[in-house]
Design a protein around this nucleic acid. Structure first.
Lengths: 347, 347
DNA sequence: CTGTTAGCGCGTTCAC
DNA sequence: GTGAACGCGCTAACAG
């Protein structure tokens, strides 16, 4: 058993109240100099450190934030995009001396009731950062009904009461497709993740469809392949597309990883990129700068999004008035080699 | 305020003791069937979930594990190697219904006293997984003196009382160098991270020196460059080496990231790999299979190490007798293109 | 300036 | 079968 405030009080021959005062430096001016020194001395000697549980129980503040990840399958902390968000979150919370409590749910658990309450709303944390919660999940409803402040990350919803931070997915897709249109492309395919799970993917897919309509370009079902977020999905999508008589001239993907898988598959089939087909990604993860060809993609300010989400939550917890409930970060088109832009301009 | 056990008791017109019995299914046979049903009903109706703090305070068990990372600078969850370890940890702890409490310290904090106690030994967790703690840090001593069970990960020490899980770093370096010797290399350089911070790096560097001695090959100071774990270190190391009159014929690195940076720099200087110089990595992160040339490296079973470390800690917490205090995982030489092995055999 | 005490929410012992 | 009461370690109101 660790040393408690009571042990200190006995040794110092003062009451626990006095000890508490010097520990927390609260009403400290009321405590005699001599007493302070003696207590501090004993605190050090006995190696006392406050029990966060007891303190939390009393103050109803824990100094912990729950960061909730929804894995598609099993815990996968090697997902660069999610971890880049976590970088931003951790850096902010570190500054503010908050601890991070990781909660990871798989696809199935995200849909269950009681997950929220038993794992998150259990008094262990002061607020919740939900990273890319599944579309229309039970967790999402629980969050609204629950008593804990929360901020959604990489999720957007048309509800002024819900706090979230996201990027302008729609704008990102528009930019990428405008770029492709300018380069003369006219048959567009889409390879993406599971739109029933990821809101970002859904938004990007919708933007893709919207843009086609706007440009009077037809959406063909056989030009759409939705899987998950692995390289395999990219490869499978390409295989499906290349089994068609009329191939697309451009492939828009919802994520860089998918694009990388697609590129690998195309190369293994001897298809020239970008001469025979253009391809684009989304997120701008570091590796895509070194793929062959280097991937034209949409930069996603993941770090800033994480940092800002943590800041918003911190403000909510601190009752600091926030005059906005959500923030959108702009994306940025990163033109590299996979669409042939530099090929054209070389001419 | 969330609904408490007392609220339930009042509504159900029973005592809190009875409610506690049905919640925890303890001495449940003593509770009347009717009562059980009524309490369960109300539990659901009112959306009750136990407060983990209060419970932890009472039982002295938290169902939380502290996972401690020591960043070289700031929180960096995008480090593949560390996150791959976390994958293993999280998958095991998920199975056992333990939560993960993340504690991140920077280089400086790791050396400070009181960090252990105030951030880790605060009653919030039942045990500690310390990922690659800094060499000889204060934290390390605190861990030994502290009352919490712990397991070190990616760290090894000659002390039967200290639990740890690590790979056979020495064997990994031996394999890589034996491979290089077989290919006829004779002037060896080493580019690595900070050996005063990372035990793994230190062990690998020592293995490098030992192997040179064993093979009667001289260790030249100008063939050693130690920085951190970024691509820049690889690049800087190469620049330094290529400023010398006599260049090394082989570069052994302590980590894949460094090797990738070195390769990039060598290519930008027009140096042929492996014709002019061979280069090796360590860890076998996914990207190195796609570098140009593909990197010959040492496979590091990071996932398994994390999983096993979590399992060991879980056993310690559960007082299940463990008949060993540490485990070493074997490494595996992965021969790709960067040392010229396939070049030779093609002849 | 210092101490007494109540209670945060829960589990558990010991009565009945 | 059930309940009263205590205490985990701490903070804060109040008393002196």
């Amino acid at each position: 058993m660790a040393v408690t405030i009571k042990d200190i009080a006995e040794k110092a021959e003062v009451s626990v109240a006095t000890v508490s005062r010097v520990i927390n430096q609260k009403d400290i001016h009321k405590v005699g100099k001599k007493t302070q020194e003696r207590v501090n001395q004993i605190l050090k000697e006995m190696g006392y450190y406050p029990n966060a549980m007891a303190r939390g129980l009393k103050t109803q503040k824990t100094q912990n934030i729950s960061v909730v990840f929804f894995w598609y399958d099993r815990p996968l902390f090697t997902d660069y995009s999610l971890m880049r968000v976590l970088d931003g979150i951790a850096n902010f919370l570190n500054e503010k001396k908050y601890n991070i409590l990781m909660n990871t749910f798989d696809r199935e658990m995200g849909t269950q009731a009681s997950v929220y309450a038993s794992f998150v709303n259990n008094g262990l944390s002061d607020g919740i950062l939900a990273i890319a919660p599944p579309v229309d999940s039970q967790f999402f409803k629980d969050l609204k009904q629950g008593r804990l402040p929360y901020v959604l990350v990489n999720y957007q919803v048309n509800d002024p009461e819900v706090c979230f931070v996201d990027c302008l997915n729609t704008q990102g897709i528009f930019d990428v497709m405008e770029h492709l249109f300018q380069l003369g492309h006219h048959r567009f395919a889409f390879i993406g993740g599971d739109i029933h799970f990821s809101k970002n993917t859904l938004d990007r897919f919708n933007a893709f469809k919207y843009m086609l309509k706007k440009k009077n370009s037809a959406l063909k079902d056989e030009y759409v392949y939705l899987g998950n977020w692995t390289e395999e999905t990219g490869a499978h999508g390409v295989k499906k597309l290349w089994s068609l008589k009329t191939k697309p001239t451009a492939i828009v993907t919802s994520n860089d990883i998918i694009a990388l898988g697609a590129i690998k598959q195309l190369r293994s089939m001897g298809v020239q990129i970008p001469q025979e087909v253009a391809i684009t990604g989304f997120d701008d993860i570091p590796t895509v700068g070194f793929s062959d060809p280097a991937l034209t993609t949409v930069h996603h300010p993941l770090y800033d999004i994480g940092y800002e989400a943590a800041r918003m939550l911190w403000n909510k917890i601190g009752k600091t008035p926030l005059d906005y409930s959500h923030r959108f970060f702009p994306t940025r088109l990163i033109i590299r080699e996979s669409c042939g832009y530099y090929l054209k301009t070389k001419n």
